[in-house]
Amino acid sequence: MLSLSINGQAHELDIEPETPVLWVLRDEIGLTGTKFGCGIAQCGACTIHVDGVATRSCQFSAGDAVGKRILTIEGLGAAHLHAVQTAWIENDVPQCGYCQSGQIMAAASLLAQNPSPSDADIDAEITNICRCGTYPRIRAAIHRAAALAKL
């Protein structure tokens, strides 16, 4: 049995330690906000926070997650919408919406470490793929979230 801390809750799981956390979240626990996009840590649709840092959960095994704090999109805005989510709404970011959980988790992690990211910082740190091409709106929303967080 593995014990994982997910969104502040402990889960005892009878799974192989090499199971990617992505599939633990989706298929064992039923938290489907974290998405499968590529399985090789290329696209970032599966981005979660591990001890506060954006991590691609398709290449992060359950065994390695023991003893760490996992936060998913469902946990990010559990009490009230996170500033990033509010900014996403204000800037009309989502189209199909599939990649947006990962984009939001990546942006929230960036802002936690760098409260006023420049465009160059965003280019360097936000490498998640969006096939709908919402990048210009994501960029604007990250700047907006940075401003909202300072209010």
């Binding site: 938290l31 906000g33 974290t34 999109i73 919408l81 996403w88 709404i89 009309d92 989502p94 919406g97």
Partner: peptide, 27 residues
């Protein structure tokens, strides 16, 4: 007009086909 589908697409709540879960379901 702001899109009506935006709110469910910033919380992870929107159900895509891949998010379907049924009792007794296998993969």
């Amino acid at each position: 007009q702001a899109r009506l589908d935006t709110p469910v697409k910033v919380t992870g709540a929107a159900k895509f086909g891949i998010d379907t879960r049924l009792p007794g379901m296998v993969y």
